[in-house]
């Protein structure tokens, strides 16, 4: 049963599958810091996915149909990966000064599940190609799969759907504004002074109606606050809730204003950080793609 082409197909499939997962994990880093053990868990998962994927086609050709049922088994397993990631991130989120938000966590968990499927399909195709042809065909398919998964991985970022620029932070009485967007009421003089001294304001202008609807999503705004706070540091602790970064929407124009008190007071990188925040899959809206939405917009 373990003929040479069978082993060859499995080996090529498994190796390429795990390598592709490892490549995707590296790209993951900013979105979800994977600790050494997190990496191990996901590589182990990828290995299982790759093994199952790569045996599927040879098994079918050898008329070992039971082997294919393992694919279904694997799908259940990977749904558990999603649950595991979701649970863990939710638990960890309580320890964040600026929480990620449920939508962001859901997005990350979904990505983890999806990437395991990508690995499985890669291994399936590579294993099949190797078994049907030889290792050369396998590697060719692996390269194509690599290009496809790289494309599938790259989602949109905020910088592609909106213009980000600096906004002036100022007070009217106790009320805090960035340009004409109202944020909150702050009583203490000392807090106001700190804001005027250290805070940075940013205005995010959506490029079209799709972007306007996407940026209105609260989960998307929480994701922006979380990512920017992670990248620039936050002048805040649990007992100074007034320094929490806030994003508010200008009702008239759909612009989003953001106020943050960072540790690194550098507007250039703040804007860059905002631009690089991923657009959440669950927040993405496209009213312009419908008849009603596009007609209503003009």
């Amino acid at each position: 049963m373990f003929a040479a082409p069978f082993l060859e197909a499995m080996l090529t499939g498994v190796v390429t599958g795990v390598l592709i997962r490892y490549y995707m994990l590296k790209r993951d880093y900013r979105q979800y810091p994977s600790y050494p053990h997190g990496t191990t868990i996901h590589l182990a998962m990828a290995f299982i996915a790759a093994v199952i994927g790569s045996v599927a086609v040879p098994a079918l050709m050898e008329k070992e149909f039971t082997a294919v049922t393992f694919l279904a088994l694997a799908a259940t397993q990977f749904r558990e990966v999603r649950d595991m990631e979701r649970m863990m991130l939710k638990n960890l989120d309580r320890a964040n000064l600026v929480s990620r938000g449920v939508e962001y966590i859901e997005g990350i968990a979904r990505v983890f599940e999806a990437r395991n499927y990508l690995v499985m399909f890669t291994s399936l195709l590579v294993g099949g190609a190797t078994y049907w042809g030889n290792v050369f065909y396998g590697l060719l398919v692996a390269f194509i799969a690599f290009l496809i998964s790289r494309r599938l991985m790259g989602g949109k970022i905020v910088g592609e759907i909106a213009r980000v620029r600096q906004g002036k932070v100022h007070f009217k009485g106790p009320n805090l504004f960035v340009e004409d967007i109202h944020f909150m009421n702050l009583g203490m003089e000392s807090v106001k002074e700190k804001y005027l001294e250290r805070a940075l304001g940013v205005i995010i202008e959506p490029l079209d109606d799709n972007a306007r609807a996407t940026l209105a999503n609260i989960g998307q705004r929480m994701a922006i606050a979380h990512d920017v706070a992670t990248l620039l540091g936050l002048y805040k602790d649990v007992d100074t809730a007034e320094f929490t970064p806030i994003l508010r929407r200008d009702l008239d124009t759909g612009r989003i204003g953001m106020i943050i008190v960072p540790i690194e007071r550098d507007i250039e990188f703040l804007i860059e950080a905002v631009k690089r925040v991923p657009v959440l899959e669950s927040a993405y809206r496209a009213p312009l793609k419908t008849n009603i939405g596009s007609k209503a917009s003009d």
Partner: peptide, 19 residues
């Protein structure tokens, strides 16, 4: 101001001014 600051730190709340 002093009471407000202390209270805010203790309760982890935010001081707002009703003007």
């Amino acid at each position: 101001d002093k009471i407000a600051t202390t209270m805010a730190r203790i309760t982890e709340g935010v001081v707002h001014d009703l003007e």
